[in-house]
Every structure is written in C-alpha cells, then in structure tokens.
Amino acid sequence: MAEMLAGRLHLTERALRLETVPVPEPAPGQVRIKVAAAGVCLSDVHLIDGTLTPLYLPGDVVTLGHEVAGVVDALGDGAEGWQPGQRVLLQAGERDRRGTVFTRGVDYDGGWAEYAVASQETVVPIPDELPFEQACIIPDAVSTPWAAVTDTGRTRPGEAVAVWGVGGLGAHAVQLLRLVGAAPLIAVEPLAAARDRALSLGADAALDPGDSAFRDAVLGLTGGRGLDVAFDFAGVTAVREQALTVLGRRGRLVLAGIANKPVTIPSDSPFNYLQQAVLGHYGSEAEHVEQLVSLARQRRLDLSASVSDVLPLAEADQAVRRVQSKQGNPIRLILRP
C-alpha cells in the first residue's frame, strides 16, 4: 500500500505529529489531488492549542489544512469533468443536504499531506498563471474577507471604511476594499510594520489604535461623518468598543474576528438614532472563491505579497510556531509537500 507524509492533529493530546499514513483512495464522486501547496492559518494554530475544537469529526485524529491547491491525480467512480494533471484548488469545506457545514482539515482530513481527496463539487480549476502558493490561500484567507466586504458589509464605492487588524485576513481586506472602491480606506493596527504593510497594499491611512487622537483622526479623514463600515478582523473586545465610537449614520460594524466574548453597545440611544448595525460574519460561500479565481485570472488581484514564506511539509511544526508568535509578521506561510 502506498504511503505518504501528513501533518496529523491528535485532539486528546492537542499534539501535531508528522506521520506516515496510507495514500487515500477517492470514493465515488471524489477527486484525489497531489498537493502542491497548503496554507497555515491561525485557525490551525487554534485547533492545536485547544481554542477551537472540531464539531463533526468522527474520531480524535485529523489531517490539518483547509487551504489547499495542487493537481488532479485520480478520480473516483462517477467523478466527471476532471483530467489528471489539471491544476485546481479545493474549497475549504462543504455543506450537506441539511445545510451543515463541514470544514476541511477540521471535520475531515485536509491538505497538510502529499495527497488529499475531495468531493468533486469542491474542486475549482485554476489558471496556469496562478501559482499554487497563491491559489491555495484563496479559500479562507482571501474569500473570508471578500465575503465580509461584499456580502455581509455590502460595501459600496466611496464609502468610508476601516479595517482593524492587518494580519492574514485584514491584509487581504485592505486590497479587496480598494478593489471595490471604498474611500477613504483606513487601516487600524498597533504594529508599525503592519501599518506600513497596509499602506503598501493600498490603505489611504494607517492609524495606531492607542493614539489619543485616534477618534479625531478618523473624523478628519472622513470629513466629520465617521465610518460607513468598520471591519473587526482582530477578534478583540477593545476593537469593537473603539469601532463603535467612530461609526457614522447607518454605519455597520462587521465582526469577522471571533473573540468568544459578549458584544456590548454602550448606549442604545445614539445607536438607534444613527440607525447603526452590528453584523456577524463567518467564512465564505463557493461563489466567493470562484469570483476571486476569476479576478486573479483577469489580473485584478495580485496575491504575490501574501506569501510570506514557503516551508516543507516536514517543518509544519515550525510554521505553526511562527504563526503563533507572529514571527516576521507573516500574512501567510505555505507548506509544500
């Protein structure tokens, strides 16, 4: 039986182990891909440290990795329309007939491995000119902020926006908000290097949330009207509290980061009078990934700056430590089998 290397999370011990396991065979309706690149997400770190726990995993061991790209290797019975060698990425998860979302690398085996299997409905073709290292991060790292910007936040051209947290998701949010024409586009980030990065990615201004003149700066940049949309990609209570102080009339606060804390509105009077809203956001839909692949194909979206480093799969534990410690302030680290 053919074997492969895989990064496996043992939940009872919260231990990541690089193990040799059998190469999976595609079931009917599935496609097996030879993995070329897989992203390392903060969610992977949180699965290892116990902050997150799979809801639907049938067992206590799973191969991590929900951001995956590679080439078609084999087809299960009934899988049609795919050719061996075809370049593809995998959606980060799928829904069953009842609408339950199962996440790759969380509820079933993911792509921190030499091979991965996927339902053919979750396989998306990618153009030859899109590198695997960039393609693999489109599901989640790029599609989550894209869905937050376009669907949940319903951001329109000319609206004043701010992004709190310019990490793996927020950095892409800056690019995507510029793409849809938001202006002014403000990045809010305590780290000076991340503020500089936000400016290089298209932010009109980058502010330190700890600056005593923060609120005056936002009002100055927005002509006194405040923000139309505020995006929390940090998942920090203090971010929500600060964002609510600079929302304008009909302003929307989009919670893309998860704090596992109560969301408090200090006073309902101004909140109601200004007709403001707090909107929850999670993940993306299949259509968002397909839209982003199309934008990359048309050269409207450049993700080259998002690949902070590429490491061999055998060094997955090192990649996890670097993401956890924010060493080098990465947007995305990529594993290559």
Score class of each variant (00 low, 15 high):
Gln318Asp: 14
Asp140Tyr: 05
Leu201Tyr: 14
Glu67Trp: 09
Thr144Arg: 04
Asp232Asn: 07
Ser267Phe: 00
Leu244Tyr: 00
Leu55Arg: 12
Ala316His: 07
Pro131Val: 03
Leu227Ala: 12
Gly39Arg: 08
Glu114Tyr: 14
Val123Ala: 09
Ile258Ala: 11
Pro190Lys: 07
Ser200Ile: 05
Val320His: 05
Gln134Ala: 08
Gly110Ser: 15
Ile334Ala: 12
Ala173Tyr: 05
Leu57Tyr: 02
Val142Thr: 06
Asp317Tyr: 10
Ala74Tyr: 04
Lys261Phe: 01
Asp208Tyr: 02
Ala198Lys: 11
Glu129Asp: 15
Val35Ile: 11
Asn260Arg: 15
Ala135Val: 11
Gly235Ile: 06
Leu169Ser: 06
Ile265Trp: 02
Asp44Gln: 14
Gly110Tyr: 06
Arg17Gly: 00
Val323Ala: 04
Pro190Gly: 13
Glu287Leu: 02
Pro190Gln: 03
Thr51Asp: 07
Ser212Gly: 15
Thr103Phe: 02
Ala6Arg: 09
Ala173Asn: 03
Gly224Glu: 09
Cys41Tyr: 02
Asn272Asp: 00
Leu90Ser: 00
Ala193Val: 15
Val218Asp: 03
Arg300Ser: 05
Met4Cys: 13
Leu18Ile: 11
Leu75Ser: 03
Cys41Thr: 08
Glu13Arg: 15
Val31Trp: 01
Val142Ser: 04
Ile331Pro: 14
Pro58Gln: 06
Val123Cys: 09
Gly39Met: 12
Ser212Lys: 15
Leu303Arg: 07
Ile33Tyr: 04
Gln86Ser: 08
Gln276Gly: 11
Trp164Gln: 07
Thr53His: 10
Gly65Ile: 01
Arg215Tyr: 07
Leu311Trp: 10
Pro184Arg: 06
Arg156Asn: 03
Ala15Gly: 08
Val310Ser: 13
Thr150Glu: 01
Gln275Met: 12
Ala256Thr: 13
Phe132Ala: 08
Ile33Ala: 03
Gly153Leu: 04
Asp96Arg: 13
Gly85His: 12
Val21Glu: 04
Gly181Leu: 15
Tyr115Arg: 13
Glu121Val: 08
Val123Lys: 06
Pro184His: 03
Ala198Cys: 14
